[in-house]
Design a protein around this nucleic acid. Sequence first.
DNA 1: TCAGTGATCCGCG
DNA 2: CGCGGATCACTGA
Length: 179
Amino acid sequence: MVQLYDLSPSPKCLRYGSYSTRFGKILIASINEGICFCSLQEEQAEEQLRQEFPKSIFRQEKTDWHQLAIQYLESQSSEQITLPVFVNASSFQLRVWQLLLSIEMGQCATYKEIAERLGVPGASRAVGSAIGKNPVALFIPCHRVVQTGGGLGGFRWGLEHKKRLLAQEALWRHALDNN
DNA sequence: TCAGTGATCCGCG
DNA sequence: CGCGGATCACTGA
């Protein structure tokens, strides 16, 4: 499972690396205590990293936290792995992201449902912007949230990736259910 | 403070 | 469909 921790003040030094996973090529960045960033867009990933942490310096270097994160992604039953993830969040964002962690693979929720579950039924739009700022793609599964009408909604890491991930996860879930 | 901006939703024509 | 109004957290000035 993913454990969320508060990331502040902003970290001095980040280590990052690119990896191939069953979800495609990704970039993961970590601090000493855990991971803090994950992008699906290899071309823009480094620039996104810089934008997310404007005051930090970066070293291209693989770490044990990266390895654990990869294990987490590749394992079928990721419940047995505890992965610390550090985020800078407002209290509202934290509540939203925490809720996303409970959506299982192959499942979907809508922006509206999330808002209702938080007890703020009118806040579906605010939920959308909160989800849009998720700094760790895949680990906080923001791709599993779609529009009420059946539309995809948006995706910070490229709409094509969202479409692909949802299709893949639906297949995997189907395979799992047959066992 | 406050106006503007969203990865929204709903109703209306 | 397309449009406007409702709605709410966040941001920048």
